[in-house]
Amino acid sequence: MSSSTSASRTTAEADGRRSSGRPSPSPGGGLGQALGDGWTIAKRNLIRIKRVPDLLVGSIVSPIMFVLLFAYVFGGAITLPGADGSIPDPRAYREFLIAGIFAQTVIFGATITGSGMAQDLKTGIIDRFRSLPMAPSAVLVGRTTADVVNNVLTVVIMTLTGLLVGWRITTSVGEAVLGYLVLLFFAYCVSWIMAYLGLLVRTPEVFNNVTFIVIFPLTFIANTFVPLETFPTVLRVFAEWNPVSSVTQAARELFGNLQPGAPDPTAWPLQNPVLYSVLWGVVMLVVFVPLTVRQYQRAAAR
């Protein structure tokens, strides 16, 4: 112990001598610095979003396309229970649909985090980051934060498209804001899982295939696009406990898009959609933040 103290004293002296009149890295540490480092990385990723508009175009165009396809292609054929008998009501379906598209789109938005991490591993920039005296969580915190900004932009675009096809928020501003927060918070938590997967598979292309295969069923076996009443029992139970359903349900409730006369949900998650969604989010964070930080340190050390 004593020898290491003397060694670090010598080094400190060398530092002082070398950097007279020069900036020298501050030893620092702690939460403040971790947040600062996270913000530095977030800025980097925001610049990238600006410079590589392809991604943004993708996450803007696909929701618009989805809204229009579902509203006008399927809309006429899908009958909502409780809506006036056998006559399909396209307007009611569009009202129902938008929250589902919101949920699906922000979850797909969260996958950008994972392909971004895989990309960074591939290009070697992670090596640079890892050789710097920064918080190990910073790359992940910065990445997930920047991707929230991306998701906010996407949500704005979808809202505008929704308004264009006749969708309306009929609740108070507070409830509406809470609705958006549930969507964005849930997506943020999912993005940590995506970061984990991205670090695991290490190749952006493979990552995209894997997540597509996982996320498509997750967002379709849910109340996103059709009411659960039409599902066979097994799928229905799955869908009722699927957090994508509760997020969608929460948004519908908070935007005032529940269909008048629709049967009340019988499953607990859908009776308490905000609570259930937030619980899921918290569990995802508690499990995946440490797991992902560890995987980051490991993946980079290969």
Binding site: P23, T40, R44, T123, G124
Partner: peptide, 30 residues
């Protein structure tokens, strides 16, 4: 206390030269 330049340049392609170096400086907490 160290500086490293690896075998393959570890710079961000989308950032400018200035942005790359400022980011590194920020991460050294200068």
């Amino acid at each position: 206390r160290i500086g490293v330049s690896g075998q393959y340049a570890a710079v961000d392609e989308q950032l400018t030269g200035t942005e790359n170096l400022r980011m590194v400086g920020d991460l050294y907490h200068l």
